[in-house]
Amino acid sequence: MAGRAEALPAPGHGARQGIDTALVGMLLFIASEIMFFAGLFGAYFNIRAEHTVWPPQGFELDLGLAAVLTVILVSSSFTMQYAVSCIRKGDRTGMVRAMTVTVILGVIFLCGQLYDYASLGFGISSGVYGTLFFTMTGFHGAHVLGGVIGMSVVLLRGINGQFSARHHTAVEAVSIYWHFVDVVWIGLFSTLYLLR
């Protein structure tokens, strides 16, 4: 008979070596999110291929604002990674500071996006280009919002003294998610603004 205790991993915790179970869950979730956005990008390129004039007449985007927002979101990935490296070393104060900056950058991005929406000359119902633009950036924005909320929760837990060099799965998980949101934006920015 095998040893008894070793055969009984507690649910929800990495009983075996390797990546933490929660992180495996997050990575799998990201995989499904990638496929979700793949569906949106697929729709974009499918419809784009059907049109000879693209974007159709009368759809002007604010490249300058989008470029600034891109810089903001990409920098937030770096501050996020800095927060992770702090907590890996056990530096909770550094993590809280870097995470605060990340949350603020995320909020600035969202505000900039809303400003952009308000000032654009078209809406979701003004033809297929408007539908694509607002759907793709809108779903991305919703993910940014989700990330900001998730980071805020982690931040509050950090302020309350949780997390250490050994136990900080939530920080790792939220950082993976945030990098993913960032990468999606880079894809969106390239597709919608650069490859016009």
Partner: peptide
């Protein structure tokens, strides 16, 4: 995991 999100979109 890989097919349903496309349907969701």
């Amino acid at each position: 995991l890989l097919a349903t999100p496309v349907f969701t979109s």
